[in-house]
């Protein structure tokens, strides 16, 4: 009987391995382990076995049944896996078809540069303030030490609405407004749109500036340099250097033009920077004490520095845009490149 059981075991194991699929495997299971299965029948024949042998035979049958069950499970999971694989590969889709939710658009290059500049300044302790674009002559000029009929008015071609109201030619117009509003010490930046009566491939009648103003008891040109270096490095990369050149603005004294290492050639000289390795990007200086006084700030106690620059130009330099007019042309083929 023991031989018979071993024979069944061997036969069953062979047939399990030969099964080609789940149903064949199931047939083998029924054949051996089913209610009328061969192994079950062996148990039925136990009556003929001597009582002393019965426990032995019983244990053997149970062992064979368990081992066969394990084998069935193993084979079965193999088939299930296989079926799953087949199912998965059958249900594969073309992942390169377009997504169904709408595709993203993009911000204008100007907005992206503004974000970098503004966030950097906010990180350095500046608060963002806003001012009107249609402005009183007083804030755009007089409060900035440019009286009516002053020769410095020739530096900018201004659009006028009336004798007294104009389209601001510089975001510096926010300076006097903010001095009347905030108590020093403070640091502000003011981004915004400005207007000049000028139009060609490098000048647009409408463009954008960022103005910065710091008022404290003890700021100097050296702080101005450190501040602008930090801002320009965040904008153009950590190797960026800046340098000062003398200039004139009625509202700062001393006044400087600020050159930034050419972001294209990193200072070695190229076509864009006309071989100088630098680009003139900003105007800056120590706030003229007359401007502080007109803004109601004690110029004996406080000193300030201010800077301002065209953000369109920074965006153009950063993104390799040659003509300022393409910034305003809004050709979708241009805008799609900013994705």
């Amino acid at each position: 009987m023991i031989e018979q059981i071993s024979g069944l075991r061997e036969d069953a194991e062979k047939e399990i391995r030969l099964a080609q699929n789940k149903s064949e495997l199931n047939a083998v299971r029924v054949k051996y382990l089913g209610k009328a299965g061969l192994l079950t029948q062996v148990l039925r024949g136990m009556r003929e076995v001597s009582p002393e042998m019965r426990p032995k035979i019983g244990a053997l049958v149970n062992e064979v049944r368990d081992s066969l069950e394990a084998l069935f499970k193993e084979e079965e999971s193999k088939f299930e896996n296989l079926e799953m694989q087949q199912e998965l590969s059958k249900s594969a889709i073309d992942i390169t078809e377009p997504s169904k939710n709408s595709q993203r658009g993009a911000l204008h290059p100007l907005s992206r540069v503004y974000e970098t500049l503004i966030d950097t300044c906010v990180g350095l302790g500046f608060q963002v303030v806003d001012g009107p674009e249609v402005e009183l002559d007083y804030y755009n000029f007089e409060a900035l030490n440019v009286p009516k009929n002053h020769p410095a008015r020739d530096m900018q071609d201004t659009f006028f609405v009336s004798d007294n109201i104009l389209l601001r030619s510089q975001t510096s117009s926010v300076q006097a407004r903010i001095m009347q509003k905030l108590k020093p010490p403070f640091k502000i930046i003011s981004p915004g749109r400005v207007y000049r009566n000028d139009s060609d491939s490098t000048h647009s009648p409408v463009f954008h500036q960022l103005e910065g103003l710091v008022i404290d008891e003890n700021v100097s040109m050296a702080d101005l340099k450190a501040m602008l270096t930090a801002l320009m490095r965040k904008t153009f990369g950590e190797e960026t250097q800046i340098r000062f050149r003398p200039s004139f603005f009625p509202f700062t004294e001393p006044s400087v033009e600020v050159d930034v290492t050419c972001p294209i050639c990193h200072g070695s000289g190229c076509r864009i920077c006309k071989g100088t390795g630098f680009m003139e990007l900003l105007g800056a200086g120590i706030v003229n004490p007359k401007v502080l006084e007109m803004g109601g700030i004690d110029s004996k106690k406080y000193r300030g520095f201010a800077f301002g620059f065209g953000v369109d130009r920074v965006a153009m330099v950063k993104d390799g845009i040659g003509d300022i007019r393409s910034m305003f042309r809004n050709d979708i083929r241009f805008l799609k490149q900013m994705k």
Binding site: G125, Q127, V128, D223, R243
Partner: peptide, 22 residues
């Protein structure tokens, strides 16, 4: 102005800390 080229100043070392905000 080239005197500033090599000058290393810590940013706002003599100023009051202000809160930056949008």
């Amino acid at each position: 102005y080239s005197a500033y080229d090599k000058l290393q100043t810590r940013l706002f070392e003599n100023s009051v800390v202000t809160e930056g905000k949008l």
